[in-house]
């Protein structure tokens, strides 16, 4: 498994775990209020910070571990032609997934007319798109593009 593959796997898991935490908080708040909770910027900010720290931390840790094991540490983290193709293909497919999530959130809004629910749906679509992008990287690396 290459450095990039491991890094994207860790980031994808971080998005899923932090996303589950975010929606658990939203669910708890909504249950307390007995209606859809309004956006909580503290929770949203915490989600972004957790994902950024885990993603950056895993890439840094994996990079240093790979550099210790490699014969030529300078080559760790190189982004070659294959990495570029995998990156483009994964991002392009993930953008379609995010778009579908966005369109579903819009159609749902036509029925419930709740801005807070539209906000949470959009955040969910972005999280799913982000996680899909990371796991598509892993899939495309393993499928040998």
């Amino acid at each position: 498994m290459s450095f990039w593959e491991k890094g994207y796997l860790a980031t994808g898991l971080a998005v899923l775990i932090a996303g589950a935490g975010y929606f658990y908080f939203v669910w708890q708040q909504s249950a307390g209020l007995e209606q859809i909770a309004p956006p909580n910027w503290g929770t949203f900010g915490a989600y972004l910070i957790v994902v950024t720290i885990i993603s950056a931390g895993s890439f840094i840790t994996l990079g240093s571990l790979e550099a210790r094991a490699a014969d030529d540490p300078d080559t760790v983290g190189d982004f070659d032609e294959r990495d570029r193709f995998v990156n483009m293909k994964s991002l392009a497919a993930a953008s379609y997934i995010t778009s579908i999530g966005g369109y579903l959130a819009l159609v749902w809004f036509l029925f419930h007319h709740n801005g807070d629910l539209l906000f949470h749906s959009l955040v969910g679509a972005l999280m799913i798109g982000e996680a899909a992008m990371c796991f598509l990287h892993v899939f495309n690396y393993n499928r040998a593009y």
Binding site: L91, S95, F119
Partner: peptide
């Protein structure tokens, strides 16, 4: 792929701007 890649980045940025507009 290349066009989809860049438009995906734009979509993400515009979605985040929409979220900020709601804030």
């Amino acid at each position: 792929w290349r066009a989809g890649n860049l438009s995906g980045v734009l979509l993400g940025a515009l979605c985040m701007l929409s979220i900020v507009s709601y804030a």
